[in-house]
C-alpha cells in the first residue's frame, strides 16, 4: 500500500517536472500554448482601460485568508491579479485600491503596488494607504469592503482570495455601485454564491489561472496551468480506472 507521505512527495515531484517540461517546451517552440477560454479574463483588460479613462477606481480584494495559513495560495492568486492590474492602472489619476482581511496579505499588497509603481518610474504617485486592512474578522472585513466599494467610486471590483457566503454581501454592495465584478475563491460555497452574484465567477482552479491569462501571461504561469490540466486528466483517468478495477473485483496494491 502506498503511504500518504510517498504519494505527497510523488505528486510534488511530478508537478515540478510537468511545469518544467511545459516551460522549456514553450521556450523552445517560441510560441505560447493555446489556453481554454475563461470569460472572466476576456473582458478584463477592457474594463481596466475604461476605469482609467473614466477616472474611476479599480478595487482588488484579497479575501480574509492569511498568508502563512491554509488559504495562502488564494491570497497569492489575488496578488498576481493585483500586479497585472496595477501595471495598467498606474497611469490613472485614481490608483487601484486594495482591501484585505489580514495583515500579512495587506503588507504584500502594499509591497506589490510599490514595486509596480517603481517599475513604472512613478514611485512618487504610490500611496501606501491604497493597500489597506478592511477588517480583522470575517464580517468586519466584509463591512469594510462594502464601505470601500461605496466610498471609493469603484467601477471594477475583483475579489480574488478566500471567501465564504459573505461574498454575496460584498457582491451586492458592488452591484449597488454598478461595478463590474469578478469573484474567484477557493471555497465551494463562495464559488456557488459568486456564480449567482457576480458578473463573472472563477470556478475551480480558474482562480489560480489569472497569471496565465492577464497581460499576455508569464511563461511559467502558462506552464503551470498546462501542468494543472495534465494532472487533472491523470486524476480523472485514475478515478475511472479505480471504478473499473473495483467493478472487476481487482484490488489495487
Amino acid at each position: 500500500m502506498i503511504n500518504e507521505s510517498t504519494l505527497g512527495i510523488g505528486v510534488v515531484i511530478f508537478t515540478i517536472l510537468l511545469i518544467a517540461l511545459f516551460w522549456f517546451w514553450a521556450r523552445r517552440s517560441g510560441r505560447p500554448p493555446a489556453l481554454r477560454e475563461v470569460d472572466a479574463f476576456e473582458g478584463l483588460p477592457q474594463k481596466v482601460g475604461e476605469a482609467v479613462e473614466s477616472g474611476k477606481r479599480i478595487h482588488v480584494s484579497l479575501g480574509s485568508g492569511a498568508v502563512g495559513g491554509r488559504n495562502t495560495m488564494a491570497a497569492l492568486a489575488g496578488l498576481t491579479v493585483l500586479e497585472t492590474i496595477a501595471e495598467a492602472a498606474t497611469i490613472s489619476d485614481k490608483p487601484p485600491v486594495v482591501t484585505s482581511g489580514d495583515g500579512t496579505s495587506m503588507i504584500l499588497a502594499q509591497d506589490t503596488l510599490r514595486r509596480v509603481y517603481k517599475q513604472q518610474n512613478a514611485e512618487d504617485l504610490y500611496d501606501h494607504l491604497a493597500g489597506r486592512l478592511a477588517g480583522a474578522s470575517v464580517m468586519s472585513y466584509t463591512a469594510g469592503v462594502m464601505t470601500t466599494l461605496k466610498d471609493e467610486n469603484v467601477s471594477t471590483s475583483l475579489l480574488i482570495g478566500t471567501y465564504g457566503s459573505e461574498v454575496a454581501l460584498m457582491a451586492d454592495a458592488g452591484w449597488g455601485e454598478n461595478a463590474h465584478q469578478i469573484i474567484g475563491t477557493d471555497t465551494t460555497q463562495g464559488q456557488a454564491l459568486a456564480y449567482v452574484a457576480a458578473d463573472h465567477a472563477l470556478i475551480g482552479e480558474d482562480v489560480f489561472a489569472s497569471g496565465a491569462y492577464l497581460a499576455g501571461g508569464k511563461p511559467v504561469h502558462r506552464a503551470s496551468l498546462q501542468a494543472q490540466d495534465m494532472l487533472r486528466l491523470v486524476i480523472v483517468a485514475a478515478i475511472i480506472g479505480g471504478v473499473i478495477a473495483n467493478m472487476l473485483g481487482l484490488r489495487l496494491p
Binding site: T72, A74, A77, E83, K118, T188, F208, Q228
Partner: peptide, 27 residues
Amino acid sequence: GILLGIALGTIATGLRVIMGADHPYGE
C-alpha cells in the same frame, strides 16, 4: 471535482513560489 481543481491550483501556485518562479515580495 471543484475541490480537486482547487487542490491542483494550490499545489501548482505553491510550487511556483517554492521554485522561485513567482515571488510576491522584493523589487
